[in-house]
Design a protein around this nucleic acid. Structure first.
Lengths: 112, 112
DNA sequence: CAACATACCTCACCTGTCAAGGTATATTTT
DNA sequence: AAAATATACCTTGACAGGTGAGGTATGTTG
């Protein structure tokens, strides 16, 4: 168990949705921008990333389309839907709650 | 996926160790004190709790002994070891790091 | 032309969680 | 006295998300 697995587990969807709130983007670049934002301390594994895309698309949170690049590898772009925007807000709220709860629970004070 | 599963996943060990930093205690009561501390909003499922005890004991983070109750159901008490105390401190640090990373990643600002 | 970067994808496995089931003792209610 | 509830422990099988390892294809760089 590393710091980048179970502690961040369950946040993958939120992280992706947050990125897509800014603009449409494709998988490879989404991962790069996440790496960039953490100063290289965190990257989504490819398998995790694509699993999350499938999950989010099935849930109606994102939609996808192929880019029209004339050169280089093809790119599948993702776009956040209205459902996705709602989910994102919900997830933000849940994170706030969970964060407070964890902070409270892992302190040693106030345990009887 | 509920707020009490994936978002708190990976914190079970830390929560238990935090409780044991205060004093030795037995499973049933540990769970009660966690419920009490969250005002009933969170409880570890029994299966999760006992799985975690096995995991922590195997890792040398806790040790256990049977209580000498003369009446009522038997109680298995757990005690945090030196290794457990070290682990607890490490986990606290990892949580701090992870928290900052997540906070940063799920914001919509600063994505290019 | 080999190596690397870009860019996509799938499969099998691992691990933590948990619903569902079980055991046993003591107390309270009917 | 029987039934229900609370205390207190435990295991098993299934599920879901993460990930290592593998694959495909194109373009660029040394």
């Amino acid at each position: 168990m590393s710091i980048t697995s179970d502690l961040l587990r369950g946040h993958t969807d939120t992280i992706i949705l947050a990125r897509l709130m800014a603009s449409d983007n494709y998988g490879y670049e989404i991962n790069k921008s996440i790496q960039h934002k953490t100063g290289g301390r965190y990257e989504l594994k490819e398998a995790t990333l694509y699993t999350a895309f499938r999950r989010l698309e099935t849930a109606g949170c994102i939609s996808s389309y192929w880019g029209d690049e004339q050169t280089g590898a093809r790119r599948r772009y993702y776009s956040i839907t209205d459902i996705g925007k709602e989910s994102y807000q919900t997830l933000l709220g849940e994170w706030k709650t969970a964060k407070e709860m964890i902070d409270n629970l892992i302190k040693t004070e106030e345990y009887e």
